[in-house]
């Protein structure tokens, strides 16, 4: 798996490169838009991480030119959060995912893993983690033969976890993907929902599926 990393802040770039290498990726590092465009156009990559704010040519313009040149490598853009227009523009230009700074490294790795696996159709309608199953179409959730009744938002939250088992999601990420809130709510709404979801999904069962990763976020994991 080969990843192109375009990020002008060398220290940040360094961290990402190290984490990606440890996870088994081969990483090419560039620090400006022109070199990113050049490498992405000439070398085959499985994924590209593009910072939006770069000297010379910015990330969005690199992405635009890549798509215009019919290069459809999966692209994850890194934005400064709060720039809603930037994020929307990125997705409209054909980015596959985005992350806001400051991001969690674990989450970045999970997203890159998801992007590089994207060849297989992911939107299956029947999800299963250990003895918990979810039918996305009929909206049935069953654990160990017992049906579980979930409210709309709870269902969406559980689906998000079940689609990526073993991956830690930060509160920010959950807010963005489940609630579609691209700002700090300043509330503990995520924690409250997780607590309710736990009461419905985990309470009374010996094996817990929803885990807290201290300080980082939450994840769903089947026992080893």
């Amino acid at each position: 798996m080969r990843v192109l990393l375009a990020e002008d802040e060398k220290k940040v770039s360094n961290f990402i490169r190290k984490a990606l290498c440890e996870a088994g990726y081969v990483v090419d590092e560039v620090y400006d838009g022109e070199s990113a465009l050049h490498l992405a156009s000439s070398e085959p990559y499985d994924a590209i991480i593009l910072d939006v704010m770069m000297p010379g040519r910015d990330g969005l313009s690199v992405l635009k030119l890549l798509r215009a040149n019919r290069i459809f490598t999966a692209v994850l853009i890194l934005t400064a959060r709060g720039e809603v227009s930037e994020r929307i523009e990125g997705l409209e230009l054909g980015a596959d995912d985005y992350m806001a700074k400051p991001f969690s490294m674990r989450e970045l790795l999970a997203r890159i893993a998801a992007l590089t696996r994207r060849t297989s159709p992911e939107r299956s309608t029947l999800l299963k983690v250990a003895d918990l199953t979810m039918n996305v179409l009929t909206r049935e959730v069953i654990r160990a033969g017992q049906p579980i009744n979930l409210a709309l938002r709870e269902f969406a939250l559980l689906e998000f976890f079940m689609r990526a088992p073993g991956i830690v999601h930060s509160r920010t990420s959950l807010c963005e993907h489940v609630w579609n809130y691209h700002f700090d709510t300043g509330t503990n709404v995520v924690d409250v929902y997780i607590k309710r979801l736990r009461e419905k999904v985990d309470a009374g069962y010996e094996v817990r599926l929803l885990h807290t990763s201290r300080g980082v976020g939450y994840m769903m994991k089947a026992p080893e």
């Binding site: 802040e9 220290k11 940040v12 984490a19 700074k101 400051p102 300080g215």
Partner: peptide, 20 residues
């Protein structure tokens, strides 16, 4: 400021996560 503040925050967060 957006750019200059986000970079150290990113580094801080990655570093602390590594520590954890």
């Amino acid at each position: 400021a957006s750019h200059e503040l986000k970079t150290p925050l990113t580094l801080l967060r990655i570093g602390i996560e590594n520590l954890i």
